[in-house]
């Protein structure tokens, strides 16, 4: 049974990813991307990694994607944006992702009622993940925290560039000389 469920989830993931790549509207593409991430989470669950599945949904589908969707929607304010919003709610747009999500939901319900461990490998619980992250791999966590610090400081500084360019008329008035050969 797990094998069938795996193939369904994998097909949903592939289908959703292809659609995410081929949509011209960013918001539509993001919705498909979320579906694709949900499908990957189901696959993780099937493989016996419920903690990774939960993280996939919390971090990717939950936090990052919702942030993306908010940013894109906030960029579309005003009359024109409202019109676009109305078009976005067209059934043709949401029916397919909703259908795919329903398939995943059904799979999840089936799994929760009669899942008795993964077919291959062992079930990895959240406790085991925590034990190894804060046991032998504690340095990896520390390095990852420095990585986040670097990302944060970098994002702050690069973001500042745009803020200062808006307020600082001089920087726009005075273009920097940039000679650039296009030979390669």
């Amino acid at each position: 049974m797990e094998l069938i469920l795996f193939y369904i989830a994998a097909a949903v993931a592939l289908f959703a990813t292809v659609f995410a790549l081929t949509r011209s509207n960013a918001a539509h593409a993001l919705i498909y991307l979320i579906v694709s991430l949900l499908a990957v989470a189901v696959i993780f669950f099937l493989l016996g990694a419920p903690f990774a599945a939960a993280l996939e949904i919390l971090v990717y589908a939950g936090a990052i994607m919702v942030l993306f969707v908010f940013v894109i929607m906030m960029l579309n304010l005003g009359e024109e944006g409202q019109e676009r919003e109305r078009q976005r709610m067209h059934p043709a747009v949401w029916v397919v992702p909703a259908l795919l999500s329903t398939i995943l939901l059904v799979e999840m319900v089936v799994l929760l009622t009669k899942f008795d461990g993964p077919q291959t490998g062992a079930l990895i619980t959240a406790k085991q993940v925590g034990m190894s992250l804060y046991g032998p791999y504690v340095l990896a966590v520390e390095i990852a925290s420095m990585l986040l610090l670097a990302g944060l400081v970098g994002a702050y500084h690069v973001g500042r560039r745009f803020r200062s360019n808006d307020s600082d008329e001089q920087s726009i008035a005075k273009p920097t000389p940039e000679s650039r050969e296009v030979n390669n």
Binding site: A144, M146, L147, A150, H157, R161, S171
Partner: peptide
Amino acid sequence: ASFLLGMELLGVALYALIAYPERG
């Protein structure tokens, strides 16, 4: 794991360093 984390730490800090000048 440490190979990838080290490489990413090196790289992420470098992206910001490359984009460091505030004009141009």
